[in-house]
Design a protein around this nucleic acid. Structure first.
Lengths: 137, 137
DNA sequence: CTCCAGGTAATAATTATCATGATCAGTTCT
DNA sequence: AGAACTGATCATGATAATTATTACCTGGAG
């Protein structure tokens, strides 16, 4: 969140952004690593982590922490909400409008609000069906 | 979330719950460990983790992941929202009412919603003041 | 006789380190 | 002006180190 001076323009940064923008899923650092390697077999995992952090500090992408285990990244800079399926782990963007007036309500309590996050948990349409009839696994 | 058979009632589990219920902050596993050790110097960190997981699976506590680094736990079982200060790391419960109709809106899209999470990010009242006048650090 | 605690070893994700190589703004040469 | 040179810095790749968490196993309590 703190744009430090200048960001040098490098090939690996470009590829990482490309990869992120080219997917609708919300990949982990390792997934990005595997993808970038297809185009650039010698990238280092450290470079992936370093750039993902840099990019999110500069607001080019969002870093999301759903489980505690690993972060996920999203090239969609706009504020939007997510659904997390507790069965299959799917994470999807929700095409619902941003709830208005939320941040104002919190600001009234003395906080200086810069953003908010909203996530829903449950079963995605697929898992909901498979579960209602006899057991998926 | 899946109550498996029976939970044996042990002293360490009691102390862990006591500790969690006796704080308004949202401690990490390690913090809980330190606290429990004051009363029970021989607890194992593994026991802390095992019980925190068991307790949250049984709905006695909530497990929260704010940053990606480590989980935090909350003895408050009721649905409520949080504020995270990006300056000092403070995490606080917000005493604002649960937003109605949210989960229904998502359910209309085919999902089976069981819960949701809402978090606000920004500066807490203290940090907001220190920052507006000349620099805290 | 099952479940749980302690202790330790093992994983998994992420971050730090460090020598080498790439990138950039300015300067000189033509 | 524009091409080539230069030094300062920032980024990369490879690996080691941390950190948080989980797995394993043996013995003991309910």
């Amino acid at each position: 969140m703190k744009p430090k001076g200048f960001v040098r323009r490098t090939r690996q940064r470009e590829v990482i952004l490309e990869v992120l923008r080219g997917t609708k899923c919300h990949p982990t650092a390792d997934w990005v690593y595997q993808e970038v390697r297809k185009e650039m077999p010698h990238v280092s995992l450290g470079t992936i982590y370093r750039n993902l952090k840099t990019l999110s500090e500069h607001g080019e992408i969002q870093e999301l922490a759903f489980g505690a285990t690993h972060s996920r990244f999203d090239a969609n800079k706009e504020l939007h909400y997510h659904f997390v399926c507790e069965e299959c782990g799917l994470i999807e963007d929700l095409d619902m409008p941003v709830v208005e007036g939320l941040e104002e309500k919190v600001a009234e309590r003395g906080y200086e609000v810069t953003s908010h996050r909203l996530e829903f948990y449950g079963l995605c349409p697929d898992c909901a069906n498979n579960n209602s009839m006899g057991r998926a696994n």
